[in-house]
Measured scan of single mutants.
Amino acid sequence: RLHIEVEGTELMKKLVEEAKRRNLNVRAKVENGKWIIEID
């Protein structure tokens, strides 16, 4: 499991799109103003 903290929506969208393209499980949520992304 990969755990990433990202500031900025554009970067988050790119990460999520790339993960979906590779058929990975992606969860994204906002915590303290940062995107928290978990990829399995």
Results as ranks from 00 to 15, higher is better:
30 V>W: 15
7 E>Q: 12
32 N>T: 01
9 T>D: 14
23 N>T: 01
14 K>R: 11
6 V>P: 04
6 V>M: 07
19 A>Q: 02
15 L>K: 00
27 R>F: 05
30 V>G: 06
30 V>L: 15
33 G>M: 02
10 E>P: 04
23 N>Y: 05
29 K>F: 15
12 M>Y: 05
40 D>I: 14
19 A>T: 03
12 M>D: 02
32 N>R: 01
10 E>D: 13
2 L>Y: 07
8 G>V: 11
1 R>C: 15
19 A>Y: 10
17 E>R: 09
8 G>H: 12
24 L>G: 04
35 W>E: 02
36 I>F: 04
10 E>I: 04
14 K>Q: 12
1 R>I: 14
34 K>S: 07
25 N>F: 02
33 G>Y: 01
8 G>S: 15
29 K>Q: 08
13 K>F: 06
30 V>S: 13
6 V>Y: 07
32 N>W: 00
4 I>P: 04
7 E>P: 07
8 G>Q: 11
29 K>S: 12
25 N>Y: 02
24 L>H: 06
2 L>M: 09
35 W>Y: 07
15 L>F: 09
20 K>N: 08
21 R>P: 00
12 M>L: 10
12 M>E: 02
38 E>V: 12
12 M>P: 02
6 V>L: 06
9 T>Q: 10
28 A>M: 13
6 V>R: 02
14 K>S: 11
4 I>S: 05
22 R>H: 15
32 N>L: 03
38 E>D: 11
26 V>L: 04
16 V>A: 03
11 L>W: 08
34 K>E: 08
8 G>K: 12
27 R>M: 10
24 L>P: 02
8 G>W: 14
37 I>P: 02
18 E>V: 09
25 N>E: 11
3 H>F: 13
38 E>L: 07
15 L>E: 01
9 T>G: 10
32 N>E: 08
21 R>W: 02
1 R>D: 08
13 K>S: 07
1 R>L: 13
26 V>P: 08
33 G>S: 02
15 L>A: 03
25 N>W: 01
38 E>H: 07
2 L>N: 07
8 G>Y: 12
1 R>A: 11
9 T>S: 11
40 D>H: 07
24 L>W: 03
28 A>W: 07
38 E>I: 14
40 D>L: 14
14 K>T: 08
